[in-house]
Design a binder for these strands. Sequence first.
DNA 1: GACGTGGACTGAACCGGATAAGCTGAGCCA
DNA 2: TGGCTCAGCTTATCCGGTTCAGTCCACGTC
Lengths: 339, 339
Amino acid sequence: MKRPTIADVARHAGVSKGAVSYALNGQPGVSDATRQRILAIATEIGFSPSSAARALSAATAGAIGLALCRPARILGVEPFFMALISGVEAELSARSYALTLQVVADHDAEIAVYRRWWGERRVDGVLVCDLRTDDRRIPALEQLQLPAVVIGGPGGTGELASLWSDDAAALTETVEYLVALGHRRIARVAGLPDLRHTEIRTDAFTAVCQRLGLVDAVTVWSDYSGEEGGRATRRLLSSTQRPTAVIYDNDVMAIAGLSVAQEMGLGVPTDLSIVAWDDSPLCRLVHPPLTALGRDIPAYGAHAARQLLAVVAGQPAGRVQDETARLTPRGSTAGPRAR
Amino acid sequence: MKRPTIADVARHAGVSKGAVSYALNGQPGVSDATRQRILAIATEIGFSPSSAARALSAATAGAIGLALCRPARILGVEPFFMALISGVEAELSARSYALTLQVVADHDAEIAVYRRWWGERRVDGVLVCDLRTDDRRIPALEQLQLPAVVIGGPGGTGELASLWSDDAAALTETVEYLVALGHRRIARVAGLPDLRHTEIRTDAFTAVCQRLGLVDAVTVWSDYSGEEGGRATRRLLSSTQRPTAVIYDNDVMAIAGLSVAQEMGLGVPTDLSIVAWDDSPLCRLVHPPLTALGRDIPAYGAHAARQLLAVVAGQPAGRVQDETARLTPRGSTAGPRAR
DNA sequence: GACGTGGACTGAACCGGATAAGCTGAGCCA
DNA sequence: TGGCTCAGCTTATCCGGTTCAGTCCACGTC
């Protein structure tokens, strides 16, 4: 089956290639009658323009890139990325853009991928995830002048456009909620320490605990994996002054923490309250269901994609604030047992 | 920052575009000395060939496509796809191929995407997931003559290449294991009924239960989501002759089932044994850790990608059998309590 | 009736590579 | 010395779109 080209459409319609191009792209230069005729013929013979040819002449790839730099082990478990990708995709496919995905080992590899994509003109822009403190990808992208939207912040995004959510506010609200329930010894199992949003959450945690006079507040670091989350929980619960509530930086670690507590004979929420960040369906699967900080991740992805397309179209890079995560109380939080 | 083209390299090297092309692609036609000089200059000025131009003249896109047709809700939770994608990606990027991803609503939309990709020459081939019985995508792809590898089977893949795993054998082994532990009333919570592998597993389940004389064996259908898995479990455990062991078609439903059992006051594994299909880290997170049927999903994806690239290169479409899932016994299975 | 105007369309150049065909000079042999 | 071969290059064409500079013709105007 031969793929129809613009020349085939032109021949059928008895016009030149140029006329077909004008007609299909909604440009002036053809009469309405001719345009309709050309459009009808194009659909009839099943013509869709070669993305390569269009990319070559119009200097636009019709695709945006997403490089993920977490190891497969973690990538697979966390629902966050799949939810994000499905949102990105929904927005892109509505505008006939493709999504090019690449899994990379580290930031050096990721920068190399950006450089290659740029040279190959394979993508019109990129979405940057997992912003770190002093992120080397930012100056690299600025130098390439490759349109980009950083998912993360605020701060540390250089001159690039960014989309961020107020994690500090969400964390503060959570701590205040736990304190209102009567908790005084609150711990936090954080994600990778060099991620920007971990830093933001840590600062907010320190600040609100200080303000509320929670002297026993403690943050331990983990890597978002269940194993590490469980280990961290075991450490916390084995200490003499064990916390009565733990906030986890993702849902997977929270579920691991729940298992550890149950394994150690502690009741949830009677002996320990648990709050998960990232409210995925997983949080509702376990027993008790987890109180969680959630927001619409597919929408987040869609907004990021829309913003990136705007930047690609030449609009100035802005810093957009997305919705703040909301706390959904479920069965894993309650007041601490009087002791 | 201007992107270097092949003409820039040629100018720097003092040769023609053609010579540069020969040198970079390892073709004969240039001396070794000139080739080395051209290669050095190309790396020096950071040249990478425009994917569009290459696609246009070489009639190859340098990308393969993957359309996922599960709703975002399910897609996000199941670790399977992310693991698969990371494996596909590893294989593709090693050969400088890109992965183009698209999330679609249903098979009609998916076929439309294939048709568009084919017309746009955007991908050189596609990976097909979630094979159904009488899958309309198969004849559509055959008609387009778009290179494809179907992940699934055996059977129902038409003339297309396929990669499959012997689910029947894995299920049979699992049932035999449970029977050896002393179970006689075994239930199965299946995934979507029109998926080909669900059908294969169901047939195998029926066959082995008949062979072993398990008259109470029952299969209930679900949709892979935790909600449905939990609901199905609740139904099963509420029946007068409730099963002593349940096999779940994925890990998410198994975890939901575990929660339901615990919620209903049943001990796992004392009152109920649970086996999960798909052994993701989630299975080790919960308490007790789940006995699971697992295999190396990233490797599965990598094999599929390699096979697809072979088909794209013109090799005949084969039906390749991948490794069979292995049962990893953990804390969620034991002999039934004597009653 | 000459002239200007603008809508509708054509022809050709161009994007950046791959590649077939043509050219050139060195080396070899009769 | 002329003719032949062949490595090593250049030139030109093509892929399938977009776009710019024209061409042509109908129409209105003075």
